[in-house]
């Protein structure tokens, strides 16, 4: 059994709490460079992606579940959303598990990250967690799944297209409730904005520590899913800003890879 794996010595414990439990089939790593990374042409790339996504969905489920436990004082309506998100993410993980096994994978074939759970463990504010988990990580996932749908369509993999499509609809809901509740919590107590800012800064530092080495931040394949962000409750200005930042990031990545 793997529980609370020790943090990689290169990482600063101020940004990372204990990991969630994983059973003995899984090897938990802390850095992107320690994950299995394959060339686009390698058939293992698609399998590893399904395995990784399965683990990430579990991590989001774990984070939503932890927030339910840590914040019994939250309004019931918000707790209902957290419960819903936990269940959706568990279902997504199961979908990926089934897809991975159906394509010949074996659970634990590839290392898995505990990044999302560890970083969120250092954020105590519920609004801060929603800002990082739902408004940042989930939004990045929205862009990535949009790209994955196009890839699966090109491969003629209708089952995967259906899986991604259903997941994408669910994620929009999770982002939207976070947007709505961050606004409501902020309206009730403006200091929440400071908590959100601190949480985002901490997550950014954690993200850089985990993903920079090995090129995990040099992603330039896909842009911002603008219509989906609008459905998820982002304002036009927020979307314009996201598009501009994404273009800058992709340009830097292209130059680095050139």
């Amino acid at each position: 059994m793997t529980t609370a794996a020790p943090l990689h010595p290169a990482l600063d414990p101020r940004f990372f709490a204990d990991s969630a439990a994983r059973d003995e089939r899984f090897t938990v790593v802390d850095r992107w460079v320690d994950c299995a990374r394959f060339d686009d042409a390698d058939p293992r790339k698609r399998l590893e992606f399904l395995h990784r996504q399965m683990n990430e969905e579990v991590a989001v489920c774990e984070n939503a579940a932890r927030s339910l436990v840590d914040h019994p004082e939250a309004p019931w309506e918000l707790r209902m959303w957290l419960a819903r998100q936990a269940a959706d993410e568990a279902r997504h993980a199961d979908n990926y598990r089934r897809a991975f096994l159906a394509r010949g994978g074996r659970l634990g074939d590839y290392p898995v990250l505990s990044f999302q759970y560890r970083v969120l463990g250092r954020i105590t504010s519920l609004a801060g967690r929603l800002a990082v988990q739902n408004r940042t990580f989930e939004v990045d996932g929205l862009d990535a799944v949009t790209h994955a749908i196009l890839e699966a369509e090109a491969d003629g993999d209708a089952d995967l297209v259906a899986l991604y499509d259903a997941q994408q609809a669910d994620e929009v809901v999770h982002i939207r409730f976070a947007n709505e509740w961050i606004r409501r919590l902020t309206a009730g107590r403006p200091a929440v904005l400071l908590e959100v800012g601190r949480a985002l800064a901490l997550a950014a530092q954690g993200f850089a520590a985990v993903f920079t080495e090995g090129g995990g931040t040099r992603v330039h394949k896909y842009g911002v899913a603008e219509e989906l962000r609008a459905m998820a409750g982002f304002t036009e200005e927020e979307i314009r800003t996201a598009v501009a930042l994404n273009e800058e990031r992709r340009e830097r990545a292209r130059r680095a890879d050139a």
Partner: peptide, 11 residues
């Protein structure tokens, strides 16, 4: 959910 190791039980 976070404290149970087995994937199937977490789900």
């Amino acid at each position: 959910v976070p404290t149970t190791p087995d994937l199937e039980a977490k789900i």
